[in-house]
Amino acid sequence: MKWRILLLGGVMLGCVAAMAPGGSAPKAAGMLALHGLEKGQWELRERGRTPPERQPRKVCVGDPAQLMQVGHPRASCSRFVVADEASRAAVTYQCNGAGSGRTDLRVETSRLVQIDAQGVANGAPFSLALEGRRVGNCP
């Protein structure tokens, strides 16, 4: 229930910012935390589960902003930047017809991040705690 309240608050805040005269929600692509991340093949592994319930998800990252939308990887979504620091970023996003979410990303190195994401995808809630690690070049 708590994540729903946080999610709703983030979505409402994003809508207010987007409606401000002459203003628009900041874009995730220009976020400070994403600047140093390396492009290439990344593995996203579940944290805190032994053994992991699923195999790691492999993602070819051409734009590090992809890591801010792991709950809706292929959806076209509008994003609102909640936090933008050199080692931490947070966004809320709304995907027309596909749901919404919030992602918090912490940068450990240019090849290692911690991702916490939650939201609703295709009518069902999700909560992800992932470690993202660059493992090589894209195939």
Rank of each mutant, 00 (worst) to 15 (best):
D84P: 09
T103S: 10
R106G: 08
S78L: 14
E108Q: 10
E108K: 09
V107K: 05
V81Y: 02
V91M: 05
R102N: 01
N96M: 13
R88Q: 14
V107Q: 01
L105D: 00
L105P: 00
R102G: 00
Y93Q: 08
F80D: 07
V82H: 13
R74T: 10
A89M: 14
A75H: 05
G97Q: 11
A75I: 06
E85V: 12
V91Y: 13
R74H: 12
C95D: 09
G101I: 10
L105I: 09
G101W: 05
D104V: 14
Y93M: 03
A90R: 15
Q94M: 13
R79L: 14
R74W: 15
D104M: 00
D84E: 13
A98F: 12
S78K: 10
G99N: 03
A98R: 11
G101D: 08
G101F: 07
S76T: 04
E85C: 05
V107C: 00
A86D: 15
A75S: 08
V81F: 04
S76K: 08
T92H: 13
A90V: 07
V81H: 03
L105S: 00
S100P: 04
V82K: 12
S76I: 06
D84A: 07
C77S: 00
T103C: 11
E85F: 11
C77T: 01
A90I: 07
R88M: 15
Q94W: 12
G99Q: 02
S76Y: 02
S78P: 02
S78T: 11
A86L: 15
G97E: 13
G101R: 11
V82Y: 14
T92V: 08
G97F: 02
R79N: 05
T92K: 08
D84L: 03
A83D: 13
V82A: 11
A83T: 04
A98Y: 07
R102K: 01
G99V: 10
C95H: 03
V107F: 00
D104L: 04
R88V: 14
Q94R: 13
N96D: 11
R106V: 08
S76Q: 06
E108S: 10
G101H: 12
S76H: 04
R88N: 01
T103V: 15
R74K: 10
L105G: 00
A90P: 05
T103Q: 07
V82R: 14
D84M: 10
A90D: 02
Y93I: 09
R102M: 06
S87V: 04
Y93W: 03
G101K: 11
T92C: 12
D84Q: 03
S76G: 03
C77F: 00
R106Y: 07
C77I: 04
